Computed example of a mutant assay.
Amino acid sequence: MTRAAKHIYTFLDDHLGIYDNPQGIEFIMNLDDSVFVVSPINPPPEPYVDFGLIYPGQPFNTFVDDFQFSGTRALQALTPEKMWALYNKGKVEIYCTLVVKVIFYALYFRLAKNNRMIVRDDYDREHQLEMVFTNPQQFLDYTQSHFYQEGG
């Protein structure tokens, strides 16, 4: 582990594995040292929807390499724009979660090659779309239709 990675690990550990930076980006380090990064997009398309960017849980060293962090200041300064750049590289996904009473239904969308998207559910089942969604309503509409197809 690099010196920078050690500092970042200690920093997250000192925050009990959960840190929200000043830009509203949340870092979550799990017991297995995998790291999630979440950046909500506000406002969501509807009040019953959580919507944003998520870096899916990756081993700690992969997380540091993907974000090219040089130290804790970079962690504290991470912006939504950097998350969008990683989305465009296929490292970050868009999540769209329906929140109805106690029911949560989430799909995760990441860019693939040739103007396509990969859609993943909470059971890690994936399928490919032959298009790329570009606005929040498209993500919401697709998530809702998939939820109803699954019997929600």
Rank of each mutant, 00 (worst) to 15 (best):
G24K: 10
G24Y: 11
G24I: 07
E26W: 00
E26G: 01
F27E: 02
I28E: 11
L31V: 04
D32F: 12
D33S: 14
D33N: 12
V37Q: 13
V38K: 10
S39Q: 12
N42M: 03
P44M: 09
E46D: 13
E46M: 12
P47Y: 07
P47Q: 02
P47F: 04
P47A: 08
V49W: 09
V49Y: 03
D50G: 06
D50P: 01
L53R: 14
L53I: 10
I54H: 10
Y55G: 10
Y55S: 05
Y55H: 11
P56Y: 03
G57R: 04
Q58I: 09
Q58F: 09
P59R: 09
N61I: 05
N61S: 10
V64S: 06
D65M: 01
Q68C: 12
F69S: 06
F69Q: 01
G71W: 06
T72P: 02
R73D: 05
R73K: 05
R73P: 00
A74F: 08
A77Y: 03
T79N: 10
T79A: 14
T79H: 12
T79R: 15
K82E: 13
M83W: 15
M83E: 15
W84D: 03
L86V: 14
Y87R: 12
Y87E: 08
Y87D: 08
Y87S: 06
N88R: 09
N88I: 01
K89N: 07
G90T: 01
G90E: 01
V92C: 14
V92F: 08
E93I: 00
E93S: 09
I94M: 06
C96E: 03
C96W: 12
T97P: 04
L98D: 03
L98W: 02
V99Q: 04
K101H: 14
V102H: 14
V102N: 13
I103F: 14
I103Q: 12
I103N: 14
Y105V: 06
L107N: 02
L107K: 05
L107S: 00
Y108W: 08
F109D: 00
L111R: 09
A112D: 01
A112L: 07
N115R: 02
